[in-house]
Design a protein around this nucleic acid. Sequence first.
DNA 1: TTTTGTTAGGCAAATGTTTGCATTAATTAA
DNA 2: TTAATTAATGCAAACATTTGCCTAACAAAA
Lengths: 346, 346
Amino acid sequence: MKEKKTTPITIKDLAKELNLSPSTISRALSDHPKISQATKKLVSDKAEQSGFRLNAIASSFRSKKTKSIGIIAPRIDIDFHSRVISGIEDYAYKSGYHVIIFQSKDSYKMEKEILQNLQNMMVEGMIICLAMETKNFDHLKKLIKTKLPVVFYDRTPETFDTNKITINDFESAFNATEHLIKIGCKNIVHIAGNQSTGIFRARLEGYKAALKSYHLPLRDDHIFVTHSLSYQEGLTCAEKILELNPLPDGVFCANDYTAASVVKVLNKRKINVPEQVAIVGFSDYPIAQIIEPSLTTINDRAVQMGEAAAKMLIQHIQDQDFDIIDHQVITLKTELIVRESSTRKA
Amino acid sequence: MKEKKTTPITIKDLAKELNLSPSTISRALSDHPKISQATKKLVSDKAEQSGFRLNAIASSFRSKKTKSIGIIAPRIDIDFHSRVISGIEDYAYKSGYHVIIFQSKDSYKMEKEILQNLQNMMVEGMIICLAMETKNFDHLKKLIKTKLPVVFYDRTPETFDTNKITINDFESAFNATEHLIKIGCKNIVHIAGNQSTGIFRARLEGYKAALKSYHLPLRDDHIFVTHSLSYQEGLTCAEKILELNPLPDGVFCANDYTAASVVKVLNKRKINVPEQVAIVGFSDYPIAQIIEPSLTTINDRAVQMGEAAAKMLIQHIQDQDFDIIDHQVITLKTELIVRESSTRKA
DNA sequence: TTTTGTTAGGCAAATGTTTGCATTAATTAA
DNA sequence: TTAATTAATGCAAACATTTGCCTAACAAAA
């Protein structure tokens, strides 16, 4: 029953068959300039015809180039991350790299463990979004000291300088809040994300700054801090918002899940969105277009963020000129997408 | 400016320092029974203290075990796939494997190309969801002939037998339709997926079978076949449904995006869901809970599908007993989740 | 004492490719 | 004709680890 494992054809086999040396085969296969066109054709034809495949492991072993990059994301079944990763994979594939993906599940322990694995695997670079639990950055600093190219996205280290791709969360939040003010809101609530994470602090600050700059009062009971901006937490916040007196006339949420929850609860209570309460979310998740009324939100450029991260990383891997760069920070433009939830009749 | 590249510590270095042979170090590190506890401790302490890391590439090269599995999905920024992949990664990680991910973008050409790459990389197994374009299965048959363990999920080959994990699309669709019938619908429309794909054909058949088994007439103009079940296509279908005379009293959609579109359009036209038209979707995407009214749908077990695929694959990789198995098919139970869009007042 | 067995570890080959350097053949300049 | 140059290819080492087989040392059995 047991079939004999067919041993794969190697470069040596080809060499023997063609009466050439292994080195010539190797060079012909990688289009080396010192090999004649005739020989190259000979080799590639033979390779094709005999079903030869280059052993990538042996090749990596010898050349020290694995053509692989590691990704650590908190999880991949979240719209934002799956889009970033899609962008990374796209760009990487076009550049001849492949991606190895791990989920930290927002655990510090996992993050450290994965980092170890990835280094053993000799990836040529890494793209990382920090786990929420991560407060100690020693493992990351140590990693960077090894000179392995690393790029962080979205949730990035704050206590030291490194390569990052982010959006301007402060400004985006400012714009979102300003938009509410401009359509006439005077009493604006914010549903905030976990304050141990920089981007959510920045969004809160942006909200505050907008109020301040328009001389609107800042009320503590207008800020609702959640743990993970989940749909569930959004529902609870919405209930609490309804108890506020007077009822706010605008809500800026740090993501679209919570914003959608608020819309839903207000709809149920027959409170008109946007006339009575206008709502702005963050991230432009698919639901933003689908819910009724459709949701004004911030396009957070997830796919582009992935592409930019991959591009930056691969430049650092390949380009000599980048050796001189200590670290690089790219901030992507965001865009306020105005939809029904903040469009009041004139 | 250029820092000297610190050469990594190898097994040989450890051997020299401890006056042991490389083979002993290797065995100690992998907990070989023939090495004494004392030596193991010595070695692992020294390894720890000196920052040694085992070169996984060299190890793979020699042992022919890469501990990696390849995934080919149409895309990863779609809820269903990102959840499946999350399930795969989870299970694989626990079992000591890592995953390399590629997106075929539903292109046949890409699929073939990726397959080549993956084989060169010497992954120990592959998990594949077919590209929509793929009609010719030669590349896959050839792959399977190499004895490399492969598991397909969701969109699986139909012209030959192989390892698969699917749900019972026919039965799920039957149940969904039956549910509509049982709440009193007599005039049910189906929004179908691309009919070149087996699972969408099966869903259509399930719909038809349910009508038949309840002696309801089957009308051609009640079936709307879409290209990719997108939100946009859902909107167009919904408009066409409104032109039907009489207006249908139930809609079964092959996914939640189109279902959400229909809900949205009907809401806009002030047609009451579920009283006038009841709606059932498929897949239990996050939006299903968020839209108003919330959507009755089929839980398609995406995460479990990923876990099951990884489990099956890893068994085939590791377990001698599986050599005797030619192919294996697992069909997961689905679940009808009844929500507001099909709950009529008694 | 000799034989047998056991335990812990060493030797050296093997893995498939790449690459610096050497070599050969062919061409050109002198 | 010969030296110098160029083009095309070969040689052999190197990469870090694993593994089949061998051996030394010691203990137990005969």
